[in-house]
Design a protein around this nucleic acid. Structure first.
Lengths: 341, 341
DNA sequence: TTGTATGCGTTATCAA
DNA sequence: TTGATAACGCATACAA
């Protein structure tokens, strides 16, 4: 049988309460007894029983809040699935999840959404907008005892506990690696269609892509780079312009949203046969275009895991009080082609 | 606050014991009261509290046994990591893991290993040898109340609760998809180096590979197929023979073990520049050869997840008594290239 | 500074 | 067929 607080108390000739105070650093214990208790606990290999902890914590109703700018963005569908799955997984332990979704990235809206659920939650999971106002909001929450976990996008200079999401640079490197695989490293003129140059992750993907060009594929050349603001119509327009202006382009690197618009533009110009296209994430649009043979590969960032794991990290912190071991939880960059979609 | 057995008991005007008997199908309850209790529980949306369940289950010491033919097989290193991680994750809930590793696939040895730990365990995780003796052993265990989960390899006609492992056919399809990506579908003469034609999973990978040839790459031709018995020396020999006999081969599909032997043979014949090689799993050998550029891609089967999830499935069954939702838990076939290793 | 009592939700045992 | 009670391990309010 695993060793318990009760057993330690008996061995030390003190009460359970005293052992509890020592092991949870609540102070008010004589130094000598403290040392003795610590030593005994160590020797016996004491591991706190989580079920007991959870049950005791059950006196208070615990809730985890989630604020996601997920509406109208198909990428987040699987993130939400992961969150809902985690919700059922921890429901049996008496902790619930309060979900609030938003459309688009408006600082005031995000702040208001957080404030709205703030009174009801003990932890917050957030894909933050990179803005000092949001950083300040996070610090407020943490100072008032609500732990914050960032998901999918990180934010600098805040007291958030940890980040779970993509290694964007490596994602860009992987994308270029796949293009190298497809072209055999032959001279290639590449058009880059990014989401926004204001989004750090998008820029990091391009950096990674360029890294691998420099490292392995010196015959690759990026000839143009345009923005879609993750909008399919805009993507359609800028792609047509780009391909008209640079008819030499024979590969497209889609960094973020607008996948459907880009592909429709390529198809409308009858270039889908000779064009090599790499994109990110497994959305209905990218899946459809891979099945059609328009896109050759997509790099996915384990959206389900991002959602699921973030909730579990929050839950474990709430019931055990232990911070996660790592500050950064990077998900894998998964290569998907037609056969393993 | 979530609804509890106690609350249901109060509402029904009965005792907790009666509610427990109904909700856990222990019988010995009058039909009318049973129906009433079920209805109230349903209406209130009763969800059993796992922490309470686990704590109550803690009266008995629970243990999960693992028998793995992992020694000398690098693939299992990550499976074991997943198991050990799960062990620490559930240690806090008072359940321990008893691990027994074996070298090679000997039916009697596997049976003895199981019998050895049998008296101390409540569940068993096993990568079974496909043999009626093992199937019988599994049925014995299940009949005596020890649930069995198969991992990495399944076994037919047994009472095992569920399987977690690879979809081998899809793995073969993915491998062929990658070769198609690399060659652009150009005419290719392929040598297949399998582990053993007696291993179902290896055959399924070849079937999947052939599926995609038929479906998408009719210019691919498998010109030869040899066995390594997962041994590097044998792999070295048969590969040299094959390449000598079929100098037209320009791609190799390594189905199982012996990766290092195959690659060394290719290098010794100075064919690594023009040869395209696809293999499985992320072992030190395959990683080294990808870094050297000898292998272009490897298809991985989430070994960590296989180990980790199998333990969690067993744990959940032990403490909740609920069988897993699915009989088959297939892990992903992950494509790894140099950039996302 | 330390000890005691109570409760979290479930299950098991014993008595009625 | 049912009810009452103790126990699992931990946290906490309160008493000493």
């Amino acid at each position: 049988m695993a060793v318990t607080i009760k057993q330690i108390a008996e061995m030390c000739g003190v009460s359970r309460g005293t052992v509890d105070r020592v092991l949870n650093n609540r102070g008010k214990v004589k130094k000598e007894t403290e040392q003795m208790i610590r030593k005994i606990a160590e020797d016996l290999g004491y591991v706190p029983n989580m079920a007991g902890k959870v049950l005791a914590a059950n006196r208070k109703e615990l809730a985890i809040g989630v604020v996601l700018a997920s509406e109208g963005n198909a990428f987040f569908d699987d993130v939400l699935r992961g969150i809902r799955r985690a919700e059922t997984e921890i429901a049996g332990y008496g902790t619930k999840v309060i979900l609030k979704t938003l459309k688009g990235y408006n600082v005031q809206q995000q702040r208001e959404a957080i404030e709205e659920i703030r009174p009801h939650i003990n932890a917050l999971i957030l894909n933050p907008i990179s803005d000092p106002i949001i950083a300040q909001e996070i610090d407020d929450l943490v100072d008032s005892g609500i732990c914050v976990i960032t998901i999918n996008t990180d934010i600098q200079n805040s007291k958030r506990m940890c980040y779970i999401g993509s290694d964007y640079t490596k994602g860009g490197e992987t994308a270029c690696g796949m293009l190298g695989m497809i072209t055999g490293g032959a001279p290639t003129k590449i058009g880059v269609i990014t989401g926004s140059t204001l989004v750090l992750g998008h820029n990091q993907r391009i950096t990674g892509f360029q890294n691998v060009i420099d490292r392995r594929y010196q015959d690759f050349r990026i000839v143009d780079c345009e923005q879609t603001d993750d909008d399919d119509i805009q993507a359609f327009e800028v792609t047509k312009e780009m391909l008209t202006e640079h008819p030499e382009i024979d590969a497209i690197f889609i960094v973020a949203g607008g996948v459907y618009g880009v592909c429709r533009a390529v198809i409308s110009m009858h270039l889908e046969e000779q064009m090599h296209i790499i994109c990110f994430d497994s959305t209905p649009a990218s899946v459809e275009m891979i099945k059609k043979g328009v896109i050759q590969a997509t790099i996915c960032q384990q959206p389900f895991t991002q959602g699921n794991k973030s909730v579990h990290l929050a839950f474990n912190y709430l019931v055990s009080g232990l911070k996660p071991e790592k500050e950064y939880y990077f998900v894998k960059n998964e290569i998907k082609i037609l056969e393993n979609l």
